[in-house]
Nucleic acid binder design. Structure first.
Length: 509
RNA sequence: GUCCCCAUCGUCCAGAGGCCCAGGACGUGGCCCUUUCAAGGCCAAAACACGGGUUCGAAUCCCGUUGGGGACGCCA
């Protein structure tokens, strides 16, 4: 089995295309097949190397490694259409010689007028066939005279085209709605429908899995396979991914490119897992209705093991970022804290916290991850959840109305003072020490439960909400012990915080 | 306009004639847990687009309607 993903390098890798790539990858990996990446850059004007590089980078980031491709080579290269021009040229000659193709001198304006006339008359908007019957000598003469024709494939007119689509079943196209497609443009470059056929055939692609937007190209491509003497591959057309309004997914729905999702702090394994769930389910008929195997969150290898084209759905799916976020939370919790810490660093910087942590700094950040990964959707929310670590300003905290309100009562004030006193003669806190301190404060003030812990939270973090104190407090004091050159912003210890807070408390009107 | 595809809870899926007065997941609501916000646990509401057939029996098969999507490029 040989499958391919063939993006045209004209922009970012979109979630829809990424899903197509993923399904191809799953199919190949689940069947011991070969996954090929081919760059469809036959439109030189729109294709860029930057775009190619970013698409390849995104595919790698998703973990969709390929066996053959532009940068890794392979037996059927080159893998950029722009480097295969000689091949298209030779096959075009072959088609011309066999009269399966002909020169077309029609002007764009003429074509456009014919198209409009056809639509107005209620006829299919296909090429009228003006140059179809042009004698070859005549065509050659016009070329000799300096005209630059395009080359069209001659679609037979005596039969409909029927093919078996793995996800759609039998698909039949009436032949009269298939116009003769251009296979070589006037400038000599190959057109899409022709280049794919030549490439897929020469690369021995056995299964073409692509978006449904290509389904209407399939009959002409099949005709070309036949004219060229190649055996057509198995086709599978995937329903498209839609936006929440059931329209085409677009920027107005929010992020649409893989790069954007990465930038927002989604993990590749979450994106891959979620994408696999649009139009496919790891639950087979075997799962039954009594629940059974209802697991949707699976590692990519397991997805590949279970994947089958036959089980791919036929209807379009709406992209649901909420469900993506759910998958992301899951993988955030599963992931190695050190990895998450490393991934979070750029987000801290983006949030305005300059840092360049070394090993010790990263270990510290990693130690703080368990208290946030459970309560966050994405990496870019981590800094916000951890502000209490790096930013402590007693005066600023006292300026908060909610804080003022809470601290206006006698009980909370006594808690804050007792806490400061207690901390004054204590070493840096770990979890156990913090508990004993809390107990001591409780004994001295008679405050307990919420009355006890909320003031402590405010005094130590300056905030009225945040991660569990049991976790934050030890983290703060671990951070306070970090050497300056660990590459993190300085962290004020709990003792200093409590003292500063009481001072601010005393100063307020 | 022409052709092609699609149609189960708000969303993603399960369902391949009786197992379904339809099952799971996300989201939503409620409850529990809890020093806060979350997380987590439990419970609940929520769908077979419509109309005709076929059949003893249809979410499942057929036809039509409606609705949605896609394609009709010297873009891919």
């Amino acid at each position: 089995m040989r499958v391919r993903f063939a993006p045209s390098p004209t922009g970012q890798l979109h979630v829809g295309n990424a899903r197509t790539a993923l399904f191809n990858w799953l199919l190949a990996r689940g069947n011991g097949g070969t996954f090929i990446v081919r760059i469809e850059d036959s439109d030189a004007g729109r294709s860029t190397r930057d775009s190619e590089a970013s698409i390849l980078r995104d595919l790698r980031w998703l973990g969709l490694e390929w066996d053959e491709g532009p940068d890794v080579g392979g037996a059927c290269g080159p893998y950029r259409q722009s480097e295969r021009l000689h091949l298209y040229e030779s096959y075009a000659k072959e088609l011309l010689a066999a009269d399966h193709a002909y020169y077309c001198f029609c002007s764009m304006a003429q074509l456009e007028a014919e198209r409009q006339a056809a639509v107005a008359a209620g006829r299919p908007a296909v090429y009228a066939g003006t140059c179809r019957r042009l004698a070859k000598e005549q065509a050659l003469a016009r070329i000799a005279a300096g005209e630059r024709p395009a080359i069209r494939f001659r679609v037979p007119d005596d039969r409909d085209v029927v093919f078996q689509d793995v996800v759609r079943g039998d698909v039949r196209f009436q032949i009269d709605v298939i116009g003769d497609p251009i296979i070589v443009r006037a400038d000599g470059t190959p057109a899409y429908n022709f280049a794919v056929v030549v490439d897929d055939a020469l690369m021995d692609v056995t299964h073409v899995v692509r978006g449904e937007d290509h389904i209407s190209n399939t009959p002409r491509q099949i005709l070309m396979y036949e004219a060229l003497g190649f055996t057509p591959p198995v086709f599978a057309h995937l329903a498209l991914v839609m936006g929440p309004d059931h329209g085409p997914l677009s920027k107005r729905h929010g992020a649409t490119s893989i790069a954007e999702f990465r930038a927002k702090g989604y993990l590749p394994e979450a994106l891959v897992n979620y994408l696999a769930l649009i139009g496919w389910s790891p639950r087979g008929p075997a799962a039954g209705r009594s629940g059974g195997d209802d697991v949707e969150l699976l590692p990519i290898d397991e997805l590949a093991r279970r994947f089958s084209l036959e089980r791919v759905g036929q209807s379009a799916g709406v992209f649901d970022e909420e469900k993506l976020a759910w998958a992301n939370r899951h993988y955030l919790k599963m992931a190695d804290p050190l990895r998450i810490a490393e991934l979070a660093v750029p987000h801290f910087r983006q949030a305005g916290l300059e840092m360049n942590p070394d090993r010790r700094g990263l270990d510290f950040l990693a130690s703080a991850m368990p208290m946030v990964t459970a309560s966050v959707d994405r990496l870019n929310q981590i800094p916000g959840r951890l502000t209490s670590l790096f930013q402590y300003d007693a005066a600023k905290a006292m300026a908060d109305l909610r804080v003022q309100e809470e601290m206006s009562a006698d009980g909370p004030q006594r808690v804050a003072r007792a806490l400061a006193d207690e901390l004054a003669h204590r070493p840096r806190l770990d979890r156990e020490l913090f508990r004993s301190v809390a107990n001591e404060v409780k004994a001295q003030t008679g405050q307990k439960g919420k009355q006890l812990f909320h003031p402590i939270r405010i005094a130590l973090t300056g905030l009225t909400e945040g991660p569990e104190l049991d976790l934050v407090v030890p983290a703060i004091d671990r951070g306070a012990e970090l050497p300056r050159d660990a590459g993190l912003p300085p962290i004020l210890g709990c003792r200093e915080r409590a003292t500063a807070f009481v001072a601010a408390l005393n100063q307020r009107p």
